[in-house]
Simulated scan of single mutants.
Amino acid sequence: MRRLVLTLLLLGSGLAHAAELPETDWLELMPKSDQKALEAMPEIDHNTPEASGTFTEKGGLKQSKGLPAVMYSSKTVASMNDRHIRLGGYPVPLESDAKGRSTLFFLVPYPGACIHVPPPPPNQLILVRYPKGLKLDDIYTPLWVTGTLKIEKVDNDLASAAYALEAEKVRVVQEADL
């Protein structure tokens, strides 16, 4: 009995990290056919109109014409619908509360998406709803977002997304996470 109690105490000390969901990979949100198309895609030229703009301009996250079809893909993975996930990414703020905390934002897989490089395809953009809000210093701050993922087409002046997530927890990635 004593050994069981000691084992439980030792295991309990690591429960904070063990309770966190494993990380979902962005590629899990993309059908295999899209993954293969991305692998075969030619190098993208960064001298685009987006390079001198910002994500806040109307259509700033929209795809420019002439990119390979996979860059416009809104194909989703059905098994991801209603899945409880933890995903790392970068915010593109859309709305904030009276205290300046971001309550609605797009989550993208890499920093600076849409500023100096073409934006990700819609199946690599997630609209995050987080009523609690999070104070964001800048869009280069990596985040962990945990919540329930939904297949939901979102199309606004800024971007098109194929998924939405009702976030229960959003936190800045810490050095200890890496």
Rank of each mutant, 00 (worst) to 15 (best):
residue 1 M to S: 14
residue 1 M to W: 05
residue 2 R to P: 01
residue 3 R to Q: 10
residue 4 L to F: 12
residue 4 L to R: 10
residue 5 V to K: 15
residue 5 V to Y: 12
residue 7 T to I: 14
residue 7 T to A: 13
residue 9 L to D: 05
residue 11 L to F: 08
residue 14 G to L: 15
residue 14 G to S: 03
residue 16 A to G: 01
residue 16 A to S: 14
residue 18 A to C: 06
residue 18 A to L: 05
residue 18 A to E: 02
residue 20 E to D: 12
residue 22 P to G: 11
residue 26 W to Q: 13
residue 27 L to K: 09
residue 28 E to M: 10
residue 29 L to Y: 14
residue 31 P to Y: 07
residue 32 K to F: 13
residue 33 S to L: 07
residue 33 S to C: 00
residue 33 S to T: 09
residue 36 K to Q: 10
residue 37 A to M: 10
residue 39 E to P: 07
residue 40 A to L: 11
residue 41 M to L: 11
residue 45 D to T: 11
residue 47 N to V: 08
residue 47 N to T: 10
residue 48 T to R: 12
residue 51 A to N: 14
residue 51 A to H: 11
residue 52 S to I: 00
residue 54 T to P: 03
residue 56 T to K: 15
residue 56 T to I: 09
residue 56 T to C: 05
residue 58 K to W: 12
residue 60 G to I: 07
residue 61 L to H: 05
residue 61 L to N: 08
residue 61 L to G: 07
residue 61 L to Q: 04
residue 63 Q to R: 13
residue 65 K to W: 05
residue 67 L to H: 11
residue 67 L to F: 13
residue 67 L to K: 02
residue 69 A to I: 01
residue 72 Y to V: 14
residue 73 S to A: 04
residue 74 S to C: 09
residue 75 K to I: 07
residue 76 T to S: 09
residue 77 V to T: 10
residue 79 S to P: 08
residue 81 N to L: 06
residue 82 D to M: 10
residue 84 H to E: 12
residue 84 H to M: 15
residue 86 R to T: 10
residue 86 R to M: 13
residue 87 L to I: 15
residue 87 L to E: 07
residue 88 G to P: 00
residue 90 Y to C: 05
residue 91 P to W: 07
residue 91 P to L: 00
residue 92 V to T: 10
residue 94 L to V: 13
residue 95 E to G: 02
residue 96 S to Y: 11
residue 98 A to S: 08
residue 99 K to V: 01
residue 99 K to E: 15
residue 101 R to N: 14
residue 103 T to P: 04
residue 103 T to L: 03
residue 106 F to R: 03
residue 107 L to W: 03
residue 108 V to H: 10
residue 109 P to R: 02
residue 109 P to I: 03
residue 110 Y to V: 12
residue 116 H to E: 07
residue 116 H to G: 11
residue 117 V to H: 08
residue 121 P to I: 04
residue 122 P to G: 04
residue 124 Q to G: 15
residue 127 L to C: 06
residue 128 V to H: 01
residue 130 Y to S: 02
residue 131 P to W: 01
residue 134 L to P: 03
residue 134 L to K: 11
residue 136 L to W: 07
residue 138 D to V: 02
residue 138 D to S: 12
residue 140 Y to F: 14
residue 143 L to F: 02
residue 145 V to M: 09
residue 146 T to R: 00
residue 149 L to T: 07
residue 150 K to D: 09
residue 151 I to A: 03
residue 151 I to S: 01
residue 152 E to A: 10
residue 154 V to R: 14
residue 159 A to L: 08
residue 160 S to L: 12
residue 160 S to M: 09
residue 160 S to N: 11
residue 164 A to V: 06
residue 165 L to D: 01
residue 166 E to P: 06
residue 166 E to S: 15
residue 168 E to M: 00
residue 170 V to M: 04
residue 170 V to R: 00
residue 170 V to L: 03
residue 170 V to C: 02
residue 173 V to D: 09
residue 175 E to Y: 02
residue 177 D to P: 09
residue 178 L to R: 12
